[in-house]
Design a protein around this nucleic acid. Structure first.
Lengths: 208, 208
DNA sequence: ACGCTATGTTGACGCTGTCAAGAGAAAGGC
DNA sequence: GCCTTTCTCTTGACAGCGTCAACATAGCGT
């Protein structure tokens, strides 16, 4: 039972994760080489293995670190938004879009079949925290009588929609003929969902 | 220049693709080995390379073959559905769900960063055909006065929603606490979208 | 002082994708 | 006829990869 005794004791672990995240900026996770990362940091090819045990667990930790960073950015974006629940939801969607655009391979790694949440506690924890953030932000947009089950379903659908548009857009899978940006599609879809929840028609207004 | 002179001349190419698809049933694309596939078919380790040039192009062809098969199944499902446009859209969503559940790794390969549509004509063609099927099925659900641009946007959002729910569900990313199956979420979301399309419209959206 | 645990190193193994060169058959012009 | 080209496929080699095993070195509690 020991935590970090001093801030720079186990820096290698963090440096490995940071180096991997840096490479993921322009390289898919599957062609990421542990040996190259180790060499880049000037350590032996076994150093990553010492700390993480296997490539899979290392990648899971990388994904966890990336997701944790995304969670922090999303929280900051929500805090900076207006006090309106709907505005905060839009801000969260913007943060999601920004994250997947800046780090598509981190997102792909965290949500793909390569690693499982059980592969590293960092990833498991990060996934829970991100989901809680999504859930709470969406729950704040619900009318007062909404049941928790209904809120969960709406959160799942909302997240899936933002996720789908963002991911298809990030990997260029949406046809170029569509006369809208991914941002427009996402915000329109959210407005539509919000309107459906409150079930009386009005013109949704949100800033940006 | 010749095409298939006889039905069993270039069978190796197809057999390679089929063997790869079979392995993708329970193995992620990234840990698929061309050498193993070749050995399984009793040919040399260079045989796949002869036909496809590189691992990337081979995987693109595999993804294309898988997508083409998915397109056929989706078409069949639509044909078997009732004559109602909404029923056909639901049937298409069911086919999509079934495909991603049966072949999650094929779907992941075709929509991920590993291969690009330009890597093999088969994939490019299959992507176009699937999109056309989606677009046409969704277009049939639009009120008569809908513009083509609006239809395109709605098709993109609808597809993204189905895609998001299906993919998150297929890879176990949706929390277990949600009191609904992926099928229920998908069909509820589609019903909501359909209702939104036919209901009195809110503000006309932005232009191009 | 001693051993334990954490942290890193070196060396080897089998597997992978890819390159290079060649074998054998079919196709087609002379 | 034959000769050349093309297509299909094989064999052999190479560097890079993840991983296993064994060893080195420090810090620390007892």
């Amino acid at each position: 039972m020991t935590a970090a005794v001093s801030p720079d004791v186990d820096r290698l672990q963090d440096r490995l994760l940071q180096a991997a995240l840096a490479r993921l900026a322009d390289t898919p996770a599957e062609q990421l080489s542990l040996r190259q990362i180790a060499q880049e940091l000037g350590v032996s090819h076994q150093a990553p293995y010492v700390h993480f045990g296997s490539r899979k667990r290392f990648l899971a930790a990388v994904a966890g670190a990336g997701m944790a960073q995304a969670t922090r950015q999303a929280r900051a974006a929500i805090s900076a938004a207006a006090d309106d629940p709907a505005a905060r939801l839009h801000a969260l969607a913007d943060a999601y879009l920004a994250f997947i655009r800046e780090h598509p391979h981190v997102h792909d790694l965290a949500n793909g079949p390569t690693v499982a949440k059980a592969d590293h506690p960092l990833l498991q924890q990060a996934a829970i925290e991100y989901w809680n953030l999504l859930h709470d932000t969406i729950a704040d947009c619900q009318p007062s009588r909404t049941t928790e089950g209904e809120t969960l379903r709406r959160a799942a659908v909302t997240w899936s929609t933002v996720y789908g548009i963002s991911r298809l857009s990030a990997f260029g899978q949406l046809p170029a003929s569509i006369p809208a940006t991914a941002d427009q599609l996402v915000h329109d879809a959210i407005d539509q969902l919000l309107a459906g929840w409150h079930h009386r028609k009005q013109e949704p207004s949100h800033g940006t």
